[in-house]
Amino acid sequence: MDQYYSNKRIVLLFLLPALVIYVGLAVYPIVQSIVFSFYEWNGLQGVPMEYVGMNNFGSMFRSAKFWLSVKNVLQFIAVNLIFQIIIGYGLAVLLAQNRPGFKIFKTIFFFPVVLPLTATALLWKFIYFPNNIGVLNQLLNAIGLESLKTGWLINTKTALNAVSIANVWTGFGYHMVIGFAALSAIPDGIMESSMIDGATGFRQFFSITLPMIWESMKISFVLLITGSMKNFDIIFVMTEGGPNGATHVPSTLMYYEAFKYDHYGLGSAISVFIFVASLALAGLTIRLMRRESVEY
């Protein structure tokens, strides 16, 4: 078997297709954009780029808007991580009990994931409309909590969380599916023997189930962190970083700098930051979550 696992020719042949496509179309351009981050360029073909060293990074780190966007994205990541994991895996546990009809539920719970963002964003706008127009405010009226009514997407205190919740709703279905797949892969025998040992409910979940699905959770964590870090679409569509810049995250800020204000260098610097920060966060997560996964 040692020979089988160290065949150089096979290693090369099997890696080649993926690496060629990936390096040619993903790595090459990101390297270019790292190079851009050391230049000043107004985005006009024919206008030479000017080398400015670390200046773009300097103005990025000096900008209050940038630090606000970092704070925002951390909050966005936290809300998404906590709620998507709890809701996604919670529902997966309920589904994995395999009661009659669970397939229908599983399919329906997944709907928001497949819905185009256009539809999702519009729906949530109707929910968050201010005054008595939005559903959420109408709901608060109905249950006598008028005092909580607000313009959810224009109140700087609520706007970011409102978008985060919409994103949670859009995304948790995917983690439910991952969790469900992991739970279904646990052989029935293990559960039954633990029952005989007297483990029930929560204890069973924490001592048996959780370790068995730990690997899958790790995947969910990494996907959520990197996905939320570079998330652009939902914030852009729902608030465009507003009201007055309050919901900007680095990716929307980068978009505005590069594509609207023609500061390609600064925009590239912000994207290098996004890239490095998600690498660091993902690495940290994997390290923190490292523990013996259970073999069975």
Partner: peptide, 20 residues
């Protein structure tokens, strides 16, 4: 090296890609 590709924000690479 391969997995790091998950962190690439695609808005950034549009201009270099379009050139190329």
């Amino acid at each position: 090296f391969v997995v790091a590709g998950m962190m690439i924000p695609i808005q950034t690479i549009i201009i270099p890609l379009a050139f190329y």
